[in-house]
Amino acid sequence: MKWTIEVGRYDRSQPPRPDASRGYPPPYEDAPAKRYQIFEVELEDHAMVLDALIAIREYQDESLVVRCACRSAICGSCGMWINGHASLACTTKLQDVAVNGKVTVESPPSMPVIRDLVCDMTPFWQKNLKVRPWLENKQPIPQGLEEYRVPNAAMEELIQEVSCISCGLCLMDCESFAINKNFTGPAALAKAYRYTADPRDAVTSQRLGDYSEPDGLWECTHCYECVSRCPKGVAPLDQILKLRRMAVEAGYTNNAGTRHALAFAESVRDSGRLNELTLMPKSVGLFNIPAQLRALPTAFNMLRAGKLPPIIHHKIPHVERIKAIFKKIGGIFK
């Protein structure tokens, strides 16, 4: 059937000039102007978005650029925005996303663009490098033809992350990355879990300490965008949550993230509901006056919008039952 493909194009006659002083995005001082171009292609009903793009590139406009190699969700090259969501072009069926036969594709706005559908993945690779993504071998390394003896279950626990193809979809649509470009990001933190949880790794504790630093694993806001975007079932958020548990159990609790989680749990334990008024001061630290002052404008805006939580916090009835649940769970929240 006939498909209409609307392609966000960025033409660039000169190479991008990196501008380190501006961080990202954009790292280039001359981000190109965007325009949308309509193409029509004749393809089978079950064709993929990538099939359409290749057909355009081969037979209509050789100047359309798109990264692709394997065409089957293995190489991770063809991550892009399809109808406003980060997706792999090679496994997204036209018929699943088309609206009246039309599909819109473009470079994801969260990443710096090089040209057309080719974005600059540098932020993605930099974040990966930040988590020390390699095994620091536990000593002694087995000698001769001996492997580390570890249960298969320990290896299977890691295969979910090892399935990651670095397509970057999780980062492209990450809500925390949208606000804080220094956030380590879903894929890199999933990779962090993969090496932290590897029984052959020697620096588990140091890793957990490093990942607990600002911009690290507590920066995620649980929006689940990474889980729903991931084409390989890596579920980066699940890996982040496992890392958080490990970090807290290892004693890395002196940070806003852990304090926030503890304050949240305490409030629920003691009153059965969230005390939003005390959550912020407890998270940043009760004596951290500068951070609390910085939050004042936000509080003011909330007040104006009628969103400020009640000053007097009420307990729910039968709160002792909630306490009993916490006691039974045990751990640091009891």
């Binding site: 033409d11 660039r12 006659s13 000169q14 190479p15 991008p16 590139r57 406009d61 050789e62 100047s63 650029v65 798109v66 090089i114 040209r115 057309d116 080719v118």
Partner: peptide
Amino acid sequence: GDKSRVYNQA
């Protein structure tokens, strides 16, 4: 079929 210098796949 592409005269651009940048990322010229053609």
